[in-house]
């Protein structure tokens, strides 16, 4: 009897995304395992549950608001100012964002055309928030780079301010500035050399985890305990900044992220991009592996997640 198949693999199998060998072993196992068969059946029902969700109809007030917003925009354009149509705002921070949006005379790029799409794919930004796109296509990259420098610089300054520069471990421990943060030991950083891929993620993560797990600190270890090195895996030649921000943002209550692999990730049909692979352990000991872009350090960790997988306890 082969070991149980996790839900994600079963879901990928249902979508026909496993290679022949994997598919065969999944089928063989499921044929003789009522537990996995039941999970597979339940997975098959998820689409139906989602499809059955009723959609609340478009409220008339929202239709009216749309008309009004467009009317205001038209007036603003007619008066030649290209002024943001913030008049209809409801007190949130839309005004500020629309100011930002109005970079060029004809506003932000809502549409992403072919060549821009190429650019975007090449940096593996899968759904690109349009707010970042200014009048010229290269603007966002410069802005993003500037933001990253700012954050990293800020983090480093904070580190020096707090620790007098004595801490030589780079950015990892630099940003414990969130008051609510649970004090966990900083994650161990490794550079396994793995080139993570969507299809291989789970297996690759399993391999890295099985090498690292024996040397990871146990759950509930003291926060000031020094993070060990993993003898089976090399440490990164250079510790990237901002990993801890990212880890904090993506580690839920009752979870911890004891291991981060500094690696690359190649999306379907894309180029390899730098990625941090976070190994987050829940209370039961199984791991969620999140592949994140280093943009994560910029403060929107959930958004930087390129891929994820579940890996059973090693």
């Amino acid at each position: 009897m082969t070991s149980h198949v996790d839900a994600e693999t079963l879901a990928l199998s249902l979508e026909g995304l496993l290679d022949d060998e994997e598919e065969h072993s999944v089928r063989t196992h499921v044929a003789g395992c009522s537990q996995c068969a039941e999970i597979r059946e339940a997975l098959g029902e998820v689409s139906g549950l989602l499809a059955e969700e009723p959609v609340p109809p478009l409220p008339d007030t929202v239709s009216a608001r749309l008309d009004e917003a467009i009317r205001a925009e038209r007036q603003a354009q007619a008066s030649g100012g290209g002024t943001p149509s913030a008049a209809e705002g409801d007190g949130d921070d839309r005004d500020e964002r629309e100011d930002r949006q109005e970079v060029g005379p004809d506003g932000p790029g809502g549409a992403v055309d072919g060549e821009a799409a190429e650019e975007l794919r090449s940096r593996a930004a899968e759904v690109v928030p349009m707010r970042r796109r200014g009048a010229a296509r290269w603007m966002p990259y410069i802005a993003a780079a500037a933001a990253a420098v700012f954050v990293i610089g800020g983090g480093a300054a904070l580190l020096r301010g707090m620790d007098g520069g004595a801490d030589g471990s780079g950015g990892v421990q630099a940003q414990n500035d969130q008051p609510h943060a649970v004090k966990e030991p900083a994650p161990v950083l490794v550079e396994s050399g793995t080139a993570y891929t969507p299809e291989g993620l789970e297996g690759q993560a399993g391999d890295v985890l099985s090498l690292a797990a024996p040397e990871l600190p146990p759950q509930g270890a003291e926060s000031d305990e020094e993070a060990p090195e993993i003898s089976a895996l090399p440490s990164p030649s250079e510790n990237p900044s901002g990993v801890s921000t990212c880890v904090e943002g993506l580690t839920g209550d009752g979870e911890r992220t004891p291991l981060v692999d500094v690696a690359t990730y190649t999306a379907d049909g894309g180029a390899a991009v730098p990625a941090w692979v976070l190994y987050t352990e829940d209370a039961s000991g199984s791991y969620t592996v999140s592949v994140v872009s280093p943009e994560c350090a910029g403060g929107a960790p959930e958004d930087a997640v390129l891929d994820s997988a579940s890996v059973p306890a090693p």
Binding site: A7, E8, A11, L12, E15, A42, V46, L50, E126, A267
Partner: peptide
């Protein structure tokens, strides 16, 4: 719409369904 490969859409759907499963089990 999402400007990704169809295979990426499929794998996101598959992974999403697997993640949703524990939350939806009681609705089955």
């Amino acid at each position: 719409i999402l400007e990704v490969a169809p295979g990426t859409v499929k794998s996101r759907c598959a992974r999403g369904r697997a993640r949703l499963l524990p939350y939806l089990a009681h609705l089955r």
